[in-house]
């Protein structure tokens, strides 16, 4: 199991995956918006999306969990 974390504070702009999707290492799963910039967050490992912890529009802090893979 690998968790995908936010690397900075910002808002969740887009969620690019659904529960059950297979993702590969390096694939963008969430796009954050911080300081008027879009920041894609990529999976650091491959896996199946088990849970999405955030919704579009949510505010997240650095190191908050975004997506849980298994």
């Amino acid at each position: 199991m690998a968790n995908i974390q936010s690397n900075m504070a910002g808002s969740v702009w887009k969620i690019l995956v659904n529960v059950g999707d297979e993702v590969t290492e390096g694939q963008d799963v969430v796009i954050l918006e911080s300081m008027k910039m879009e920041i894609p967050i990529a999976a650091e490992a491959s896996g199946i999306v088990k849970e999405i912890k955030v919704s579009e529009g949510d505010f997240v802090n650095e190191e908050d969990e975004l997506v849980i893979l298994e």
Binding site: M8, A9, G10, M35, M37, I39
Partner: peptide, 12 residues
């Protein structure tokens, strides 16, 4: 700007 000087990623 509050940002990384190389990647230009924000740095709040």
């Amino acid at each position: 700007y509050a940002e990384d000087p190389k990647t230009f990623l924000p740095s709040p």
